[in-house]
Design a binder for these strands. Sequence first.
DNA 1: GCTATGCTGTGGTCCGACCACACGATCAGG
DNA 2: CCTGATCGTGTGGTCGGACCACAGCATAGC
Lengths: 234, 234
Amino acid sequence: MKNYELVLHRVEADLAAGRLRIGGRLPGERTLAEQLGISRPSVREAVRVLEAMGVVRTATGSGPEAGAVIVAEPVSPLTAVLRLHLATNHLPMSDVVQTRILLESWSAREAAGRAPGLDAAELKVADDLLDRMDADGLSPEEFHLLDAEFHVALSGLAGNVLIAAVMASLRSAIHGYVLAAVPNLPDWEAMAVTLRGEHRAIVAAIRAGEPESAAELVTAHIRGFYQAAQLQTP
Amino acid sequence: MKNYELVLHRVEADLAAGRLRIGGRLPGERTLAEQLGISRPSVREAVRVLEAMGVVRTATGSGPEAGAVIVAEPVSPLTAVLRLHLATNHLPMSDVVQTRILLESWSAREAAGRAPGLDAAELKVADDLLDRMDADGLSPEEFHLLDAEFHVALSGLAGNVLIAAVMASLRSAIHGYVLAAVPNLPDWEAMAVTLRGEHRAIVAAIRAGEPESAAELVTAHIRGFYQAAQLQTP
DNA sequence: GCTATGCTGTGGTCCGACCACACGATCAGG
DNA sequence: CCTGATCGTGTGGTCGGACCACAGCATAGC
């Protein structure tokens, strides 16, 4: 067992046992090193891994925000894993897109199924994003960033934090890919108009509590864009 | 920008540009440190992160297997992220189970849809696993390990490496949870018989090319177990 | 020709030091 | 008494250097 793994196991056990909670802080690196009988560099390697896993956030200085604070940020590690493995070319982008369609259509169906419920505030967030996307003079970059935010917000309506986190990371990883394909579109302005209309229709279907309609609209929405941009669709 | 991030960006760029390939090796830690003008501890922190992300595998000694070898192992990092975030209690197990049902039912539907195709070898793997699960005297531990392998193999039939990887990590993270619930079952032996039969039926539906049937069988199979074990089901 | 022995380069670990930073206590001035 | 600047202290960030264990390979000896 490598020394830095001692720290990882210790932290995971402390988390599971409730000795460490979100918002709490890890002991200082020097303290941790002494407690476990290892050196500070070994502790630091472990803290780096925890940071990459989205479990701690480190900052210098003093005060409540300084040190290694326990957080729960699953999106960034998932994004990093996705990006790195896409870079190795052992993870086809088409699989990522296919996964996106699956998760988003499911989320829309689920959200519509619980429509009478508590989504009012979150639906408002989605509406606001759509309003901002109506602004004139948005660059493709800005538009697609808002688009990504909208889709992530949609997936959050289903109430499954794991699926929402995976969706957010998928969308981050896809973003560059989408932007690179914009020049393939014969008429980006026209496409933007189409996308805006489809967005409104999706939200309307969810609000109306029509699961199957919402799911189909989402699927068609995503597929349509990828086909228009001449990207491979699964 | 922290120094170790220099290494991460460098490696990601090298991967994307094809300068680093699976099976290749990272430059030595000392070399990398000199090239980037940073210290070896900083390089080591980055290598640890890459290792945690499933992109490199380190080993001491010399020869082709030593050093930091580029690999593509997405399952272990996903499992680690899942385990850690489950430990923080900010990721409900019910969401994990719900995700599992979604991915597995989709995989079964997809696999059945492409049944006439090339799955022969992979279907055989699933069959072999089921044969091994028929052995007498299997402990719940052994049985559920084989069960997990079977479900992961099933999700691989759909041909989406991302979904297969996520499923494998979900199953790893769930395993302890499932085992802890076995004592809740009124009659584990009877449950094992039921599960075996359902497994066979699922494979049969896929082989017969019946997507909807396969998906429903999988959903019922998973839901049935969780309900019998008195675990919360979404 | 075969075996044993070192040599070499790899990661693994540690130590000690210094820096930048941010908070909070302390002290000087009003 | 209040307000302000100042310094102390503890945090992570970085560095250089050193030594170890390990595995393969070249070499010397048989």
